[in-house]
Design a protein around this nucleic acid. Sequence first.
RNA 1: CGGAGUGUAGCGCAGUCUGGUAGCGCACCUGGUUUGGGACCAGGGGGUCGAAGGUUCGAGUCCUUUCACUCCGACCA
Length: 568
Amino acid sequence: MRFSRLLVPTTKETPNDATLASHIYLIRGGFIQSVGGSGLYNFLPLGKKVLDRVREVVKDELDKAGCQEVSLSFVTPASLWQESGRFEKYGKELLRFKDRKNNDFILGPTHEEMMVNLVRQTVKSYKQLPLNLYQINLKFRDEIRPRFGLMRGREFLMKDGYSFHATTEDMQREFTLMEETYKKIFRRLGLEFRVVEADSGAIGGSGSKEFMVLADSGEDTIVVCDGCDYGANIEAAVRKEKVSEAEAPEAVFSKFHTPDTTTIEALSDFFKVDPYYLVKTVAKRALYADGKSEVVLFALRGSDELQEVKACNAVDANDLVDISEEELAEVGLVAGYMGPTVLPESVRVVFDNNLKEASSMICGANEKDYHLVGNSFKGVEADYHDLVAVQEGDLCACCGKPLRYTKGIEAGHIFQLGTQYSEPLGATFLDENGKAQPMVMGTYGIGVSRLLAAIIEQNHDDKGCIWTKESAPFDLEIIISNIKDEEQMALGEKLYASLKSQGLDVLLDDRKDRFGAKIKDYELLGVPYAVVIGKKLKDRLVEFVTRDGLEKEETSVDTILDVVRQKV
RNA sequence: CGGAGUGUAGCGCAGUCUGGUAGCGCACCUGGUUUGGGACCAGGGGGUCGAAGGUUCGAGUCCUUUCACUCCGACCA
């Protein structure tokens, strides 16, 4: 491709809403163009090319693993989503609209329903299973707050795959195969990543893993262990049960006057007791799918923090929201002095696992200015769940070494779904005994457009993009310093033709601009290698440039083809 | 949804307080010079000033309504 014919509107100036390197360089490098803000982007020729290359890697590995590509209708009849129950359950991110006949439709944020519908109409027998179908198509999620360019757009390209099996064991075999396949994809793209345990979120199901591209700008906090392979999203991370070396406060059960002691810190000071022996009681309003809501108390040790996603899952709610003191008072709770042991009838309480069998605990008396000391939960039957947010320094449940936090970009997510969609949607097959069974499903996603952003987040410098081999828009760029110099021009054309005939994808910068502008554009675009034909041509020398590190190597005109063949 | 801002040329912005010919930089077009780190000179094109209504002889500027977008927070595969 000739640069002079290529539509790449590069700019010196940074758009004022761009903060992340990937956002800045993808816009400045003319890969993408913002469409009136709001998380919508056009892909310009170079962006489209990179997107296609990434997509090709994904497709290649999936096809090798036996998956089959399909393309589902983007506009989805709402009836399918009503069947699965997600039409109501899925929040406002789901874009709903009506056609001229006033029928409801949605733009798919994910396509479990559509794919199950496809399969239930075509697969009837265990002989047709297993089956793994995927598509690489646009998704739409009406994000509350799109930002960071391609990282969190509203419209985005995603690979979503779905597998269908006769047994749970076979689904788990496929799940493992997909984990391995995803690893191959991320490795080929040159990404540093980590596979972590994850919360299943709105998709539902159990046994889910996320593929996190490691980057400081990542939106997810992940907990990793340096002693072993353990890694998990903070939303799902577990730890070895915490014990305290602090002395337990010996006390018989009694009520204590504790004026103005409404925080864990104040309470710890008041009794001179480690927060480990205090009960932290967090009140939330739980919102349920059917539109109902209730006040729920979450009780955990004062030394721990509540992990809201875990809490939400523990009560099977759609969402948890904060609650005001007034609302608490209405149901008979006293803010600052709540405790899980003394409660109005109507209030639901969930205990953290760490409180099971705990003794010598201090908790609120649910009465202003009073706490209860000497509480024991030995033998107490209650609703116990894991509710705590793992902290840095907590110990790994697998190997006992300290855990630490790092940041990641969620680029892939695989789920063991089970029969969660096949049952309500009636996707059944006949087994060997002629008996109808719901198919066992897995679902697997990769954020393809997000991967472009992730690649740049991990591979850039202060001058621009540094594409990895399999994601680069071109293999090599030839820069002719001055096109009016006939010798330079002639050599450029000759190299261009010769390298192209060898099957390399080459960009020839034949624009009328000066050298400075061309090299700046080269650095911004981030093609892995360049050959610069410039002043030294008088001495029969050209430059071979490696974008990563910007190393320059002077090479004779006679050997440049060999150097390129060897390095590119 | 809470808080704070911004809407003026493709992009980045000034002009709004104090109403009176629509501006600047980048980008773009023409001609010339220049050619190893985003050149220079001269000339030029491009605007329903977010939208609607109002006040006024006159509104980018004042008033009312409304829409959109951005940032912080909450939320989020």
